[in-house]
Amino acid sequence: MESPQQTLAAWQAREAELRARLREPGISRPDQIVDKSGLQFFESMFAGELPPAPIAQALGFLLVEVRPGHAAFQGRPQAAHYNPLGTVHGGWIATLLDSAVACAVHSTLAPGKAYTTLELKVNYVKALTDKVPLVRALGDVISVGARVGTSEGRLIGPDGTLYAHATTTCLIFDAPIAR
């Protein structure tokens, strides 16, 4: 089992590897993604062919891994994310978890399919501050059908501390075709 320092070093190395090849944040054009499965979409992003989402830059987090039914984002808690009480605002945590659980569903979609979050439930279990150098939101699919996908996620530190957990329900639909 890795020590927290080894885990943190591995997480930092993965982030550096990705940032070296990622494009500037932006929005993919429909013609760039219409024929891609959810997994192919993320693989194209990791290859630097498609841009990462602008919100990741705005809030200081990054998609770091995707496989069928799983997605992981990581971010650095910063004082800029604080609420007036001196801890990371629940909205930052919710956004990180929403990204992980929704992208876990997205990773399972066939070409021509899209999704949107219908419901997000977050449980905050431990206060988060900038003393934690990095956190990861891990999202894993529970079930994906023709119209609805559900998944669950956890926000953890490099030492395994659980800060929050979440579940989501996503609506799956035919993607609008724009060529």
Results as ranks from 00 to 15, higher is better:
167 T>V: 09
9 A>M: 02
122 V>M: 08
2 E>W: 15
9 A>S: 07
38 G>W: 04
135 V>Q: 03
66 V>Q: 00
2 E>I: 13
124 Y>D: 02
74 Q>A: 08
111 P>I: 14
83 N>C: 03
97 L>Y: 03
118 L>E: 12
19 R>W: 05
70 H>A: 09
167 T>A: 07
17 E>K: 11
14 R>Y: 01
148 V>D: 06
164 A>H: 00
3 S>D: 06
173 F>H: 12
147 R>W: 06
78 Q>F: 14
61 F>D: 01
114 A>D: 07
50 L>F: 05
8 L>A: 10
36 K>C: 15
154 R>Q: 12
1 M>H: 15
119 E>P: 06
138 L>H: 15
132 V>N: 02
21 R>T: 11
159 D>V: 11
17 E>A: 13
131 K>Q: 15
10 A>N: 12
7 T>W: 09
123 N>H: 11
23 R>L: 15
149 G>N: 05
176 P>W: 06
165 H>T: 14
86 G>Q: 06
5 Q>C: 08
59 L>F: 01
57 Q>K: 14
40 Q>Y: 03
169 T>D: 02
46 F>E: 01
89 H>R: 00
148 V>S: 06
90 G>L: 08
41 F>R: 03
126 K>E: 10
72 A>L: 09
16 A>P: 08
54 P>F: 02
23 R>K: 15
43 E>C: 05
44 S>Y: 13
47 A>E: 14
4 P>F: 07
154 R>E: 14
160 G>N: 04
141 V>A: 04
130 D>P: 06
7 T>Y: 05
28 S>H: 02
137 A>Y: 12
9 A>W: 03
59 L>I: 01
38 G>E: 06
71 A>H: 00
99 S>H: 00
123 N>E: 10
158 P>R: 03
40 Q>D: 14
68 P>M: 06
42 F>L: 05
151 S>Y: 13
153 G>K: 08
35 D>R: 09
173 F>P: 09
140 D>G: 13
142 I>Y: 08
143 S>Q: 07
65 E>F: 05
113 K>Q: 15
123 N>R: 13
155 L>V: 10
40 Q>A: 11
175 A>W: 11
74 Q>I: 05
31 D>K: 10
112 G>L: 10
79 A>S: 15
152 E>A: 11
175 A>P: 09
94 A>Q: 13
157 G>Q: 06
54 P>R: 00
115 Y>S: 07
48 G>M: 04
111 P>R: 15
98 D>K: 05
133 P>S: 10
36 K>W: 15
73 F>N: 13
139 G>Y: 05
